[in-house]
Simulated scan of single mutants.
Amino acid sequence: MSDRWVAVLSGGLSHERDISLRSGRRLSAALRSVGLTVDEWDTDSGLLERLRSNRPDAVVVALHGGQGENGSIQSILEMFGVPYVGTDSRACRWAWDRPNAKAELSRVGLATPDWVVLPHSTFRDLGAQAVLDALVDRIGLPLVLKPDQGGSALGTQIVREASELPSAMVGCLAYGDTVMAEQYLDGVEVAIGVIEGPAGPEALPAVEITPPAGIYDYNARYTAGLTEFHTPARLTPEAAAEVSELAIAAHRLLGLRDVSRTTAIVTPDGTVNFLQVNVSPGLNETSLLPIAIEAAGRSLGDTFATLVEQAVARGPR
């Protein structure tokens, strides 16, 4: 394994560039610690020439948001015939869209908070206040606003009073042209990493998330010490088993590969509700997947080195 040469892709031009660079640096150090040769590549105008002239054995995508999760960079790697760790381009595109992912899991009977999707044009064409009033009638309060695509909770806001809704909607639309309004649920928020091996996907111990203000927003995610984590999550054995089953179901139903992370809410009655799935989980010092990997008695370097070997054996698509 030590003679493998891996390129870790990070950075990019999304709102999550800085977080991606942190993930890339940490992952690169972890892979070097287990003997791999690693280069860190940004996804800039020089990437295609690097792929043409100096192709690595495999690529690991440590990009968050945008091209790292919507299938764009995966399509490039497939066009160049470069093996890579992670979900293929078509499944990335499907999972990247939050409403699509929720609809797919809801279709097979898995619980997820009720939701409505509203493009920006709807407010312009039909009248903003009338649409907002109808939204509150349909979903109720409190509710959560999220961009229909994206990561790191950018643009995500909890709305508890109808008077807060117009400004919250404007803030959410700053990160995309379409908003997903979702029913707010009280409960225990957990993140469940999935690592796929020869025997199939395996759920890591669930990480319980306890943010200071009740919402796991950008600052709560990336400010060290601000959010409290419990691994394994403080759940009943039945709920712990169910969140693991949910994460594996999401991984399989959405056609994901190698690694994913599912977020869920366990309500007081024990119902496990799917929130979203991430095909390129964060790997920096405050990220949830490394916490779960460590709780499972593994190391980040060994885990991803094994995924690199799988990618090389699988070859290009």
Rank of each mutant, 00 (worst) to 15 (best):
S167L: 10
I291K: 06
G24T: 12
L254M: 06
P316R: 00
M180E: 05
V116E: 04
G127Y: 09
M1T: 10
F304P: 07
P212T: 02
A264V: 13
G150C: 08
V279K: 10
T156H: 00
S20R: 02
A311E: 01
R22Q: 07
S121Q: 09
P166Q: 02
W94G: 11
K102V: 03
V116R: 05
Q157M: 15
W115S: 01
D3L: 01
T306K: 10
P205W: 06
S10V: 02
L288I: 07
R107H: 08
P212A: 03
G197L: 08
V194Q: 13
F80K: 02
V277E: 02
F123P: 01
V8Q: 03
D57M: 11
L253N: 11
D57A: 14
A233L: 07
Q149V: 06
S28R: 10
V272I: 14
E202G: 00
G81H: 00
A250Y: 01
T271C: 11
E238Y: 08
P211S: 04
P232V: 09
A7L: 08
G11S: 12
D258I: 04
A30M: 12
Y175Q: 04
L253H: 15
I76L: 15
K146M: 14
G66C: 07
D133T: 11
A30T: 12
A213N: 14
V179A: 15
E189K: 04
E182D: 04
R25E: 14
R17A: 07
G66E: 02
I291V: 12
L27R: 07
S20C: 07
Y222D: 09
T112M: 00
V179I: 15
D125R: 11
I248W: 05
L13Y: 11
L165P: 04
T231S: 14
V59H: 02
V207N: 01
E228T: 02
P119C: 00
G24N: 13
A250I: 01
R317D: 04
L135N: 03
